[in-house]
Write a protein that binds this DNA or RNA. Sequence first.
DNA 1: GCCTAACCGAGACGGTACGTCACGTCTTTTA
DNA 2: TAAAAGACGTGACGTACCGTCTCGGTTAGGC
Lengths: 219, 219, 219, 219
Amino acid sequence: MSSAPRRPVHAGPTRGRPRSEAVERAVIEGVMRLLEDGVPLSELSVERIARTAGVGKATIYRRWSGKEELFLDVLRAAEPPEPQLPGTSMRDDLVVLLESLRRRGLAGRNSAMLHSVRAQMKSSPKIWAAYHDTVVVPRRRLGIEVLRRGQANGELRDDVDLELVNDVFVGPMLVRSVLRPDAELPEDLAERIVDMLLQGLGPAGAPSAAADSAGPPAA
Amino acid sequence: MSSAPRRPVHAGPTRGRPRSEAVERAVIEGVMRLLEDGVPLSELSVERIARTAGVGKATIYRRWSGKEELFLDVLRAAEPPEPQLPGTSMRDDLVVLLESLRRRGLAGRNSAMLHSVRAQMKSSPKIWAAYHDTVVVPRRRLGIEVLRRGQANGELRDDVDLELVNDVFVGPMLVRSVLRPDAELPEDLAERIVDMLLQGLGPAGAPSAAADSAGPPAA
Amino acid sequence: MSSAPRRPVHAGPTRGRPRSEAVERAVIEGVMRLLEDGVPLSELSVERIARTAGVGKATIYRRWSGKEELFLDVLRAAEPPEPQLPGTSMRDDLVVLLESLRRRGLAGRNSAMLHSVRAQMKSSPKIWAAYHDTVVVPRRRLGIEVLRRGQANGELRDDVDLELVNDVFVGPMLVRSVLRPDAELPEDLAERIVDMLLQGLGPAGAPSAAADSAGPPAA
Amino acid sequence: MSSAPRRPVHAGPTRGRPRSEAVERAVIEGVMRLLEDGVPLSELSVERIARTAGVGKATIYRRWSGKEELFLDVLRAAEPPEPQLPGTSMRDDLVVLLESLRRRGLAGRNSAMLHSVRAQMKSSPKIWAAYHDTVVVPRRRLGIEVLRRGQANGELRDDVDLELVNDVFVGPMLVRSVLRPDAELPEDLAERIVDMLLQGLGPAGAPSAAADSAGPPAA
DNA sequence: GCCTAACCGAGACGGTACGTCACGTCTTTTA
DNA sequence: TAAAAGACGTGACGTACCGTCTCGGTTAGGC
């Protein structure tokens, strides 16, 4: 789970006193508590984190190379679990997927701050890449799998690039939380996006029948 | 151009030495040069900016309340001009709009850093809101205007929320540059997104003919 | 008076805000107050000195390269003024010289600590050399001058190395305060040393008459 | 040899693995090697000493309460053996005593550093007292014994304070090595000091004949 | 020949100080 | 009065040691 143990891997098995796992937890939870308490990101110094967690500064630097790397683990710990897909149809799975994305942006008081943390992490391309690979990509894979199943049972056209289609579904939801982090997103947003996209925006699209019948067209 | 002149409006017309406009430009261009030279954002201190621009620190603080506010002006200066819309059809206008969005993300070596600057600015909600209102919103208004014209001439269905539709078009492009700032986006991405959305993703959509014919369906 | 301004001597006249002399004084007096208050030397961190003097750490490092160099100025400030020599005879001058040496070792509560400071400074040969050159050597020169006058008026033999003779007078007094810093030295120690040395230790030395007549032999 | 075993004297005779004497030696010799290698005193951390000696930190703290106490044993180990007195006369014995003092100050490259170690120890009065009692006092006793024998056989006046006379002999030699640790002391310094003092500095002293004849006056 | 207590090296731990750097403010002189 | 320069108090940075505390593994008795 930890990003990089920073232990010089030179010695044999475990020599010396082993690292305390409790410390790891205390630090990450300390950061979360500070964020929940409304401490602005600019006041989240390593020094203060250490003080809050009741931990020496060196103990933090022994595990993480800096604030960014620590934040990476904080975000990973805060990431909500993978949503449970109903599996009844591609359309329903997509709605659940987008809905979980919407909820992530408004989970309690700290969500705005978590958003800032994510933004802050971009200062270091390496760290951001690590976040992208371990958090964003898996979620993306899940979406593409859902789309693939949709193609298989005829809910989705065959002649489309699934990567792009995934962005088309996810983009509208994500871009709202990125551009206006504190805006409240309407509850039926996921449904509206999915249905609108499935039925097309041009006037030649399937008639309004498709808008209410949520299930697969032929079933 | 400056966001907040910070001049206490107490004195008469202009007493003493007037502020040099050259200073303003020198500072903003200094920041840009540093970014272009690959200086990481974390090393962009006010102290260094002042040194680079050959300017006193106090002179910077006289104009901007801090680094974030300065960055705001830097981003505004770096923002590409509003794209020239062809006006031949909603579809073509949308392609140009999205294409300008794509290009913004790969403008030279500094684009990745400008992206970081944008991310950094989110640490301060006030500053981000200012950026949002002066840069994001106008561009958004432009898109919605295009969509409205599309509805008027039958290119877009009548029963849709234009705000949401705008996000649906813009989202896929934006989310890619947000999640993977250094990825190269294919040149025909704008076209593909627009056409895919106009024609719908469900199997009942217009046949493949619509996919190649890029022009408006009825023209 | 200051040991090394540490200012890079590159710019022309005085540019920018000049250094505050009050700060210099506050720091040195802060150290002295801490020593007087019985703070052990090992707790005399730069951090604490700065806090005591109400001064930033950087302000200290701007003037002194480290604790040792600062202590150098503290010792120079604490050094008692050059004693007033009576000039009545070499013997009397020597007694005054040695007496001032004795008194330096017991000036208030802080003398023991000043002694520690001196000891500490030896960790850095460069700093000690500076102390030696600016404090020890002048005092030494004074002693040798007294001896030279003694040779001139017949109080001291002609065939002796004045440097060595000076050490012979100063040594016994100094060695006591070095080896046993907290011992109280008897009040008449200076007199006893001078007279004993002038009259010789061998049994063939001048009879006890020389011991009471303190003045020059021919008076 | 060890100053304070620091073993809590609660258990019976010797239970468990006994302490390795080799470790004790390794640590002390490690310190000496570091000093010989020119490592400045300020870089002589317990951590580095342990690393050099290939020993755990706790092993050092098991034996010594801290760096100062360890240095005490280092100095004791470095102390040259008590000089062999010829016994032919007080004058000769004193010369040998002072000569051994002179030699101590120039024993290889490390003598300057040993001097620093001694100085450093003064930071802790307790440690310095221990050094004084176990190293300085015995040597002092030896000097006073020599003087007493000199009084007995007529080489030294009867009416003098032996403690003070001892300081008078030792002081000039010691003060030179204290004030200028790196100065080279001339080879005949011991002889010159002793003879000068025995014959007195006043012009009424024995004529120059006594200056060359080094032996006791009456033999 | 075990048992077991104390040793050993290694290194993590909570602290504290180091010396540097940047913050935003404040004096200076110069224009 | 604004400008460049740079000192100022503050406080975080990342590192190094402090002295203590586990770890796994040794090394001697005493049984």
